[in-house]
């Protein structure tokens, strides 16, 4: 299991090189900053200490619940330009269903329970904080 919270960009290919060796299924999901409405970047604040701890606990919970042989979670903070990756999750399991479900479960949790807060940056500078979405909260109830 590997959990990283970092400001630096990451190389998804390098991070997943050799990930899940021996598993029957590996699922990876990478989230990118979308350039909606003239957005130029996102600025992501986190809670140093709690964020790493919460991510580790949840990655562990996903590994147990879905029988994963390995799990990777990397989430960036700080300023991230449109088009750049924000985060990646990778899950490895014997069969595809567990790997897909575990990645989906981790993403639903990251959206509304991991201590990160996004602010939009436009050409004129910082805009508002991104509001939590009801559908993200509802998605958690699936699990």
């Amino acid at each position: 299991m590997r959990v990283l919270v970092q400001p630096e960009p990451f190389d998804a290919a390098a991070l997943t090189q050799g990930f899940g060796a021996g598993a029957g299924a590996v699922v990876t999901f990478t989230g990118l900053v979308r350039g909606d409405d003239g957005l130029t970047a996102l600025e992501i604040e986190h809670y140093p200490g709690m964020t790493e701890r919460a991510l580790s606990e949840h990655a562990q919970a996903a590994a147990e619940r879905f029988g994963l042989s390995d799990v990777l979670v990397v989430h960036r903070h700080g300023r991230i330009a449109v088009g750049e990756p924000i985060m990646i999750v990778a899950t490895a399991a014997r069969h595809r269903r567990a790997a897909f479900d575990a990645a989906d479960f981790l993403m639903d949790w990251l959206k509304s329970r991991a201590p990160f807060w996004k602010r939009e940056i436009g050409a004129q500078g910082p805009r508002g904080w991104v509001a939590a979405k009801d559908e993200d909260e509802a998605a958690l109830n699936r699990w």
Binding site: M87, L110, S112, F116, W117, V130
Partner: peptide, 10 residues
């Protein structure tokens, strides 16, 4: 003790 808005990760 920490206070913050609803989280918006991912």
């Amino acid at each position: 003790v920490a206070f913050f808005p609803p989280m918006t990760g991912g």
